[in-house]
Simulated assay, not measured.
Amino acid sequence: MDFSMDNVTIFTHPLIQHKISILRDKRTGTNEFRALIEEIAMLMGFEALRDLPLQDVEVETPIETCMTPMIAGKKMAVVPILRAGLGMVNGILALVPSAKVGHIGLYRDEVTHEPHEYYCKLPSPIEQRTIVVTDPMLATGGSAVAAVDFIKQHGGRNIKFMAIIAAPEGLKRLQESHPDIQIYIGHLDRQLNENAYICPGLGDAGDRIFGTK
């Protein structure tokens, strides 16, 4: 499936790929799976946040006073898509502990696989923040597109989307629907199956993070 890569980063870092391989293993238990999701999110976030704006502030070191760069502007926002996106939040907060956290709740129709909103709460003023939307899996792209739609409707402008694994179909849909956002993918998988699951994938990320079936 063809799509432009102008606004897409697909990671090749060995640490990220190694950890994703452990996630895929059906023998990986809940505790380890949850920890790996956080670690991968932090590694991806290190790259995704490289363009955060800086401003020089005055700091007194043990030697002298100097001007030194710190993150500028309103604190960034992390917005997980419930529920699996919650698993990535602490990885981002480890990098930017002062970030605000919003939430978007979506459920997928079992027949059409299309998303429906049931909750949306964003930190204010959202239009002044760098917004990182998290969801471990970008499958059909429906939930991702809907989540970005909701954020834009509330005034969000500088939006980044992070997924640990993605199907080409979902990546293409998100990129075509929102060509102005930056998209970060841990691994691009082969395809969706007839049930809209990513192949080879890693199963249901929410169930594996929270230990539910």
Rank of each mutant, 00 (worst) to 15 (best):
L171P: 04
P123Y: 10
S143P: 12
I181M: 01
I151Y: 11
T134L: 09
N158M: 02
I151T: 07
V132R: 06
N195D: 13
K152E: 02
E114S: 14
Y118E: 14
P115G: 02
H116T: 11
P115D: 02
S177E: 03
P179K: 11
D109R: 00
N195C: 01
H113Q: 08
H178G: 13
I159R: 00
P168C: 14
A139C: 05
M162P: 10
V111W: 02
V145K: 14
I104C: 07
G102Q: 03
R129L: 09
D109M: 10
A146K: 11
V145N: 00
E169T: 10
I104L: 07
G105C: 09
I151K: 00
S177D: 04
D180G: 03
E117L: 12
G102W: 08
I183P: 04
Y107V: 10
I185S: 15
H103W: 14
R190M: 14
A167E: 01
K160N: 01
S124R: 12
K172N: 03
G141K: 07
C120Q: 02
T112V: 03
G170S: 04
Y119E: 09
G186A: 13
P115H: 13
Q128D: 15
R157T: 13
D189H: 03
L174M: 14
Q191V: 05
Q153M: 00
I181A: 08
M162A: 11
I104Y: 10
H154N: 04
P136Q: 02
L138I: 07
D135C: 01
A167V: 07
R129T: 03
I126H: 12
T140D: 00
L171R: 05
E110W: 12
E127C: 09
H103I: 10
K121R: 15
P136L: 05
E194M: 02
H116L: 14
Y184H: 13
C120D: 14
S177H: 11
V111P: 12
D109F: 06
V133R: 15
G141S: 08
K160A: 03
I183M: 00
Y119L: 02
L188P: 00
L174E: 12
P136E: 09
A144N: 05
R173V: 13
I183S: 00
D189G: 09
S143R: 08
R157K: 15
E127W: 12
Q182F: 00
H116D: 10
T130N: 15
F161D: 14
S143M: 04
V148K: 01
R190V: 12
Y118N: 04
I126C: 11
F150K: 14
S143I: 08
F150Q: 07
D180V: 03
G156C: 02
D189N: 02
G105I: 05
P123L: 13
I126R: 10
D109A: 04
E117N: 06
M162K: 13
E176V: 07
E194S: 13
Y107E: 06
H154F: 14
K160H: 15
E110G: 11
P179V: 04
Q182K: 15
P125A: 13
P179T: 15
R129A: 13
P123R: 00
Q182W: 07
R108C: 04
